[in-house]
Simulated scan of single mutants.
Amino acid sequence: MMSLEYKKLNEVLDYEQPSKYIVKTTDYDDSFETPVLTAGKSFLLGYTKEKEGVFKNVPAIIFDDFTTSFHYVDFPFKVKSSAMKILTAKGGFVDLKYVYLQMKQVRIDTQLHKRYWISRFSNKEIPFPKIDLENNYSKTQKHIAQILDDAAALRDKTKLLLEEYDALAQSIFLDMFGDPGVNDKNWKFEEFGSYINVLTDYHANGSYQILSKNVELSNDKDYALMVRTTDLENNNFETDVNYITEKAYNFLKKSKVYGGEIIINKIGSAGKVYLMPYLDRPVSLGMNAFMLRLKPSMNSLFAYFYLHTKYGEWQISKRVKGAVTKTIRKDAVRAIPIIVPPIELQNQFAEKIALIDQQKALAKQELQESEDLFNCLLQKAFKGELV
């Protein structure tokens, strides 16, 4: 096993405020040269024609001071916000990619709205190969980082494949039914409500007082899963989920979920649409969402893809209300206009999507295996077992 020595992040990384590198205008265009980055999830905001104030001392890590999200960057860039730190290696014994990968193991509570790099994150320790510190080089770190990079590349390749399957499914929809906003196939439009058999939610089962007496959520595994839109968003129904007892499940008879339903977020990310997977277990609908079961005259998979077209999303967004807290009502959902091709054609579309879903299931299994491999290697690197 490799000998390790732990060092605080502020001992191995310098930080710089991004003020000099903030873009002056947000007139982005893909034809421009300089990328504009954020440390958040979106990462690349666009490209700017600005030539001055470009950060060139790469590689670097851009670190969101409030969320602690971060990205490794190995090309010149500008930034959009001052709410970040730009981190670079301090000294010849530091390999920045190695540090970046080790930083992924760091966990802190970020519930308070405050800056975290100086106060918390930079004081966290990560392991370094002792041989690198003794010889003032980063040879061992580079070797470890390369192994982890190769594993990450395998994982990212599978993620890209899943994205391509999703794009193929949307392409099949447009090929069969056209763009609903243009409607060059002259489909009839009708109100979505005409094809909804059940539109319900958690609170259809009774008042707040009655529900609080009969339903108690638990993090411990129990009879039924209480599915939330967060679970659907993350496609995760195993970890960090809520459960209810069999008694509570049977009490919530108006919001039992069997699979294949359309779920719509009704508050917060109001109007966000999901398709409930078949989980082969008792499931009940969580709070803050509508559940829709459609009549036999409309295929749920067809409706789901329609609602995810640009036109469908625009129709939903028009019906979302609220300046601060966004909400959508049942009557607004029913009023959404939807094209109505023959049900036979809708079913043909669903059959094609089912074939794609079979391939996606294999890719998801491969993705999980590659995620497990990467996490295993990362743990070994943390313990000094990866050489």
Score class of each variant (00 low, 15 high):
Tyr249Thr: 01
Tyr28Gly: 03
Pro180Leu: 14
Lys49Asn: 11
Gly178Asn: 12
Val79Gln: 02
Ile196Leu: 07
Glu16Trp: 12
Leu217Pro: 03
Arg155Phe: 10
Ala169Gln: 06
Gly384Arg: 04
Leu252Trp: 08
Met103Gly: 08
Ile172Ser: 00
Lys272Phe: 05
Tyr98Met: 11
Phe290Thr: 09
Ala363Lys: 05
Lys295Asn: 08
Gly384Ser: 04
Leu355Asp: 05
Leu373Asp: 02
Leu37Arg: 02
Phe77Thr: 08
Val283Lys: 11
Ala303Ile: 02
Ala350Pro: 01
Asp109Tyr: 05
Asp156Asn: 15
Lys157Asp: 06
Gly92Gln: 10
Val54Asn: 08
Ser171Asp: 10
Leu355Arg: 12
Ser207Cys: 08
Ala204Trp: 03
Lys321Met: 14
Asp149Cys: 09
Lys330Ser: 15
Thr88Arg: 15
Lys295Leu: 04
Ser19Asp: 13
Val320Arg: 07
Leu148Trp: 08
Pro18Lys: 05
Phe237Asn: 02
Gly206Cys: 09
Thr230Asp: 05
Gln141His: 07
Tyr28His: 02
Met298Arg: 13
Lys104Ile: 01
Thr88Asn: 10
Ala145Val: 12
Gly322Phe: 09
Lys90Val: 03
Ala350Thr: 11
Thr245Leu: 03
Asn242Arg: 15
Leu292Glu: 04
Lys310Ile: 04
Tyr202Thr: 01
Gln17Met: 04
Glu50Ala: 06
Asp357Asn: 14
Asp74Cys: 05
Lys78Gly: 07
Tyr165Val: 09
Asn347Pro: 01
Ile108Cys: 12
Phe75Trp: 02
Ala335Pro: 00
Gly40Arg: 03
Ser269Trp: 00
Leu275Cys: 04
Pro127Lys: 02
Lys272Val: 09
Leu217Asn: 14
Asn235Tyr: 10
Val273Gln: 09
Lys97Arg: 15
Leu112Ile: 06
Met287Ser: 11
Leu13Thr: 02
Ser31Trp: 00
Val340Asp: 00
Gln209Arg: 15
Ser297Ala: 13
Ile61Asn: 03
